[in-house]
Structure formats: C-alpha cells, structure tokens
C-alpha cells in the first residue's frame, strides 16, 4: 500500500479518531500514515455491533414477555456473553443461567445483584428493569 492508497473513508465508528497504518511513501520508505478509516473495517465492526444489538433486543423482548429476567438484556448491553459474565462475577454459569429466569431473579439478594452491577457497570436499581 502506497501513501496515496491509504483509505480516508471516514469510518463513523472512529468518531473523528484517526488510526495509524503503515504505507510506502514516494521515497520508498514504509512509515505510519494517519487514516480516517476504511469501509472494509467499518463493515466488519458494524457487523459485530449489529449482532450484539440484535441479541440485546431479543433479550429485551423476552424480558418484556416475562420469559427471561432483565439480567440477560443487561449482559448483552455490556457486550458480554454467559462465559464472560460468569468469569467477571465469579458466579458459576449454571447459576447465571438460572438467574435468567424471572422468578429466580426476583428473589436475588442485593449482594448478588451487586456483583452483577459491578461486572456490567449497570446500577442495581437499573438491573431490575430493561430500560437502557
């Protein structure tokens, strides 16, 4: 990739940030050049974000229908999966999965909710419902 070919395609995900990519200048030397982004990178990052958003929305709908607790929704919003939430809270996966059941979740102590709050960055009172 030569200097002139470095994409400057304003990746909206960067929010104005520029990243350094290495490219060959007219003198033949390869050096870092700031880039505003490449559509290819934006497509694949957006794909990953869309997937997370879809999962969160599905979890929200399940919670609204009373089929799941809000915990699953907040886990998705924090871009976590079951394995990561389990590791971050020190609560076994089967227990976390149980806490996805609304009737079990309703009875959780403040102490356990506090661990979920710490891991997801969502305050305890917000964990109880699905408002983002």
């Amino acid at each position: 990739m030569d200097d002139a070919e470095v994409p400057q395609e304003d990746n909206v995900i960067f929010k104005g940030l520029r990243k350094a990519v290495y490219a060959r200048g007219v003198d033949g030397k390869v050096r870092p050049v700031p880039s505003t982004g490449w559509q290819v990178e934006e497509i694949v990052t957006r794909q990953a974000l869309d997937l997370l958003a879809t999962q969160a929305e599905e979890a929200r709908q399940r919670a609204l229908r009373g089929e799941a607790s809000p915990l699953e929704f907040h886990m998705c919003c924090a871009r976590m999966d079951l394995a990561l939430l389990s590791q971050c809270t020190g609560i076994w996966q089967w227990r976390v999965r149980r806490h996805f059941r609304p009737e079990v979740f309703a009875k959780l102590s403040d102490q356990v909710l506090g661990r979920y709050s710490e891991a997801t960055g969502v305050p305890v009172e917000k964990l109880r419902n699905v408002e983002p």
Binding site: M1, Y22, A23, P32, V44, A48
Partner: peptide, 24 residues
C-alpha cells in the same frame, strides 16, 4: 469471515495483518 477480517484489519494491526509494519 467478518471475524477473520476484524483480526486482520481492525484498529491495532497497521493494515494488511501487520505485514506493512514488518516491511518497515
């Protein structure tokens, strides 16, 4: 495929899966 491309081109790679930085 999206996962593969992210590992290769997302921020932190210098582009071309680090091949350009090694050329430098």
């Amino acid at each position: 495929l999206g996962h593969m491309v992210r590992m290769q081109e997302e921020i932190g790679t210098g582009g071309g899966g680090f091949r350009f930085i090694y050329a430098a």
